[in-house]
Simulated scan of single mutants.
Amino acid sequence: MKKSTKIFLTILLILIIGIFIHPKKVVYVPKITGKVIDENGNAIKDAVVSRIEELRSVNEKYGYFDYTKYESQTTETDENGNFQLSEKSRTEWIHNPLSLPIAWCFGNFEIEKDGYETYETKFDEFRQFRKNNCYACEEIEFKPIITLKNK
């Protein structure tokens, strides 16, 4: 095979792959609707519930990734102790029409209320594999009942 034919086929292959595989900003909605109660089972009103996410940045000096936690959404519980976190989050996801249905969806949050210990989710406490016919985490919902302990 001639060198020019090999170069042409290589460029054509790269173009075909580029059509199907590309990084894309994906909006996912791991919705969290929960309830906060005390150790006696009573609803806790006005507890502050915050979605916790990681912000990834590149350390320019040393060339590694820094991860910083931040609160991307905050709400308060109602008189029945109920809350909902449904703000959309953005993530980089390699997606193509032929990709495997692989995506893990996480729900990380913390709850604060005066007189109670702060509750923060543990790593992988709320995790679910992507559902069929669901793009990223768009139909995932966590429904925790959280018990806050007195200080």
Rank of each mutant, 00 (worst) to 15 (best):
T118I: 15
P97H: 10
L13T: 11
Y119W: 09
E117C: 08
I111A: 01
I11Y: 07
S99G: 10
R90D: 11
K61I: 12
E117R: 12
F83N: 00
S4N: 11
G34Y: 01
K45Y: 09
K69M: 11
T68A: 14
S57I: 09
D78L: 04
V58L: 15
Q73A: 12
A47M: 03
T10M: 15
S99D: 14
E112H: 09
F109A: 07
K3D: 07
D38R: 02
V49L: 05
A47F: 05
S72M: 05
L9F: 11
Y67L: 13
K24N: 11
W93I: 12
E76S: 15
K6E: 06
W93G: 03
L13M: 13
D38M: 06
E110W: 07
S89Y: 03
K113M: 05
I16N: 02
E60V: 04
Y67E: 09
L100R: 13
L12C: 08
G107K: 06
F83A: 00
R51I: 01
R90C: 04
Y119M: 10
K31Y: 10
K45V: 00
R51G: 00
S86L: 04
F8L: 14
I37W: 04
F106M: 03
P23A: 06
T121G: 05
K24H: 10
H22T: 06
E112S: 13
I52Q: 04
G115K: 09
G18P: 00
L9N: 04
Y62C: 02
Y28N: 04
T77Y: 02
A103S: 10
K113L: 03
Y119S: 08
L15Y: 08
P97C: 07
N59L: 07
G34S: 06
G115W: 09
R56G: 05
T74K: 15
L55C: 06
K2V: 04
E54T: 03
F83Y: 15
G115F: 10
Y116H: 06
I94C: 08
K6W: 13
D38Y: 06
K31R: 13
N82T: 09
Y28W: 08
I52A: 00
N40W: 01
T118L: 14
D38V: 05
S4Y: 11
K3L: 08
I14P: 12
K6G: 09
I102C: 09
A43M: 06
I16P: 06
P30T: 04
Y62E: 12
S99H: 12
E79A: 14
V29C: 01
